[in-house]
Amino acid sequence: MKIMTCPINGPRPVSEFFYWGALREMPNPDTASDDEWAAYVFNKSGAPGVKKEWWCHTASNTWFIAERDTEKDLVLRTYLYGEGE
């Protein structure tokens, strides 16, 4: 099975992880329009390509970001939240 590399624990089989979903910026909940807010809550991009996603290594409860090319099924890189740049 696929290998996912936790930034702290190293490469592990993907069954050791939990996939949360896409990393997205929350619009300002006080100023966003109803439509903008609904799009943020419910709409997610299904198009193949490079995604930034939240993943968790469950045994150690380590949350991190993975950049994944869903078209080529490649994990490009993983890093702790905030350390991506």
């Binding site: 939990f18 949360w20 939240w54 968790c56 469950t58 409860n61 949350w63 939240y81």
Partner: peptide, 20 residues
């Protein structure tokens, strides 16, 4: 819930820790 609260604080970086 523990896992999700951990994720939220990873983002919010509030000065507190969560223990399960």
């Amino acid at each position: 819930i523990y896992r999700e609260l951990s994720r939220l604080n990873t983002m919010w970086k509030l000065d507190c820790g969560i223990v399960n």
